[in-house]
Amino acid sequence: MLTAGVDVGAVSAKTVILKDKEIISYYILPTGSDVTQIGENVTSNALMRTGFSLNDLDYIIATGYGQNSIPFANEAISEIICHAKGAIFLIPTARTIIDIGGQDSKVIRVNEDGNVIDFAMNDKCAAGTGRFLEVMARALDLELTDLGSVSLNSKNPCKISSVCTVFAESEVVSLRAEKKAREDIIAGIHKSIANRIITMGLQIGYENQIVFTGGVAKNKGVQKALEQELGTKIAIPSEPQIVGALGAALLASLSKTKT
């Protein structure tokens, strides 16, 4: 059976192609302004590597912010449900998932079947998300992808007290003016994100194994800060950005089986 999961997030679009529940291809593209078009593009790119076409797919599930704008999808399912399915498929011992994406962050509790039993998600505020890191990288004249490695050199992380992206940026500018080391500022930013996420997740609680997914999971500095604050090791899938799309593709296999 050939299924696809299409996760169109605020920042990036991801498609995973499964053949008999084995990942045979995936692709990631920046979302841009045309959600429908990017859904098509990312899926055709993922398919291109397989030799299959859209018509060969038995079932497609869309998820993410753009889930209702993917006309070729058979069904749309919430990304929280999809993340849970994807994470437990990759790491069967997962019981808590921390997912930090472009503009939202979530803590999800799952049971052994990958069913969501509770979740918490940021609501009005972008602090504690990928967007927050983007703004900070710009304020520090760094590439987003460099934040993690630079921060690992920090010996004395700065305290970033603000929980607001805009005010935190002003705080970072002030710290730069005070000639604080860049690695210490970034480590402080990571600690601030970790604190925010962990506090949000306290309303549902944490249970090991904790798994970290989403684009921000590629940042080693945030991983380190989360581990320090949680006092436990967290697991990260080899490609943490596609977990939602993978979950959608897995749910597509289940849906197809039922029909």
Partner: peptide, 22 residues
């Protein structure tokens, strides 16, 4: 002015799906 249906949609949708599965 400080919230809208779209912003809440993901969470409500997940909650609904969670309850349906249970």
């Amino acid at each position: 002015r400080i919230y809208n249906a779209q912003q809440m949609r993901t969470r409500v949708e997940t909650f609904a799906q969670m309850l349906k599965m249970t």
